[in-house]
Design a protein around this nucleic acid. Structure first.
Lengths: 275, 275
DNA sequence: TTGCGTGTAAACATCCTGTGATCGGGAGGC
DNA sequence: GCCTCCCGATCACAGGATGTTTACACGCAA
């Protein structure tokens, strides 16, 4: 099957995708070096991050729509406990990791009881702190996948991950699970994808040399797409490279220019790479 | 930094109700004194607890229906990492707190990434450990609440979580507890649910590879639904993905011929294939 | 023209799913 | 306390949809 992303033996690859990818994290601290190290790690993990050298107001934190907050209590000053309590109280869905210098048991107990999710003592190893954040965020995220399930439309094609269903205008495309995943990948990537890349991201592991599965699936997809809207071609071959998804009028073989920047009816998205 | 010795007094005031009350916690350790101290604290907090001097099998842990597990990795032996991974993998809803002697950063990172919620180094203060457990459990329980006891209606189906009862129009559906939970989950999620997801949210722990319980229950549900309203099929199979609850006669999947030849389907009547 | 990459088609292998049956355990009735 | 019934877990099997592999024709590039 295809869904078996979980425990498939022939998939030595994917570690469970770092939990921080695509999340928003803020760090309130005063050590520029520390924040820089973290910023680098966050960036590497595909995590949207923000460094604050002074405590933001609770309202400001709310506005940031954060998933996690790393907080050095010593930055806040005398009202640190109150601040921590207000933050945790107002943002129950926010993972708060207190990362502060040496502290007493009583302080740690107090912090945790006020709502902090974890207490890390400085100096600490960046990777360990990252893991603590991940652990905290993991639970919050576990049941709120719906946000990834938003429908997206590319030209006439509409993709609904929540229904595992694709549409051309009003009509629905009858796609199998794997076909759908390929269309989804192609449609959401506004660029040429190499076969190896498609295979790896859909199958979950590296493509064997000489494997033509991708080609076969592309053919099936073209067939089904053509059956519904013969006037358009959606999947374009880039000889020697791979495939690209883009709604364009069915070109006659000529296609003199490869990049064929056909006047493309406005809808050619703001060109601003959506990714 | 955080030297501030502000009022360390236990601040008897507004600390929230202890989160461990009525929860089930197990401790796997070999230090009788340590376990006794914890046991006393757990008892004082109204927490159902269990002390194990050797690692229970994963299945045994499942059977205990725990909310949290305190684990000394050194008790497990050479296969401790594997054990930790299996436990976390099978019980995604369990808060796992590793409480072990001195360790390296790499070990802690590994433990956290395998799924542990927190890592506490021995020797540790009992109260602090309790707080860490509470913090971990707090997160887990947070999203168990969203269950609303409000009746909801999807098409002809009415679901009353408060009565554990479902209706088709006026007639009541005689469902067993588990059947009801599955219908409820499916009906309230307006999307395709994968088997693993259904299993995890209904049974409370991860589905074992090859388990077909969900299929069997789906069959029973279809049987009962069909017995009352033969004209509709509510549970739709998405081959290779999972199931989806929808009152309409499946507008998409296998409406007609899969290969849907070029010519549009002329005789496209309702064709309400129930399967 | 040659060589290689791609399109197409069909045969083939896989494994997913529906189904009926069985077994063990727990709840409830007596 | 014992018995019975019902529920839930697990298994085996069959049918069939899906995914993979093989084979060959075609077109692009050099």
């Amino acid at each position: 099957m295809s869904r078996e992303r979980t425990d498939e033996q022939p998939a030595p690859q994917a570690l469970p995708q770092r939990a921080l990818a695509r999340l928003r994290v803020a760090v309130i601290d005063r050590d520029p070096g520390f924040m820089q190290v973290l910023a680098n790690r966050f960036a590497a993990l595909g995590c949207e991050h923000r460094s604050l050298s002074s405590p933001a107001t609770v309202e400001a934190l709310v506005a940031m729509r954060l998933n996690a907050l790393v907080l050095d209590l010593s930055v806040v000053g005398p009202e640190s406990w109150d601040y921590l309590e207000r933050v945790c109280g107002r943002l129950p869905g926010l993972a708060v990791i207190v990362c502060t210098g040496p502290s007493s048991v009583a302080q740690r107990v107090r912090g945790l009881r006020l709502g902090a999710d974890a207490w890390v003592t400085k100096p600490c190893h960046a990777e360990e702190l990252i893991c603590v954040i991940e652990a905290a965020v993991r639970r919050h995220r576990r049941h709120e996948l719906p946000q990834i399930d938003v429908a997206s439309t590319i030209g006439e094609i509409t993709i609904r991950p929540d229904l595992y269903q694709a549409y051309v205008g009003e009509r629905s495309l009858e796609l199998t699970a794997r076909e759908f995943e390929i269309v989804q990948l192609l449609a959401q990537s506004d660029r040429v994808l190499r076969r190896e890349e498609i295979y790896e991201r859909v199958w979950g592991y590296a493509m064997a040399h000489g494997d033509r599965s991708v080609d076969v699936f592309i053919r099936k997809l073209r067939q089904k797409l053509r059956a519904i809207s013969p006037a358009w071609s959606y999947i374009h071959t880039h000889f020697g490279v791979g495939y690209r998804f883009a709604p364009e009028p069915e070109p006659d073989v000529e296609a003199a220019d490869h990049r064929a920047p056909v006047e493309e009816p406005g809808p050619e998205l703001p060109a601003a790479l959506s990714r």
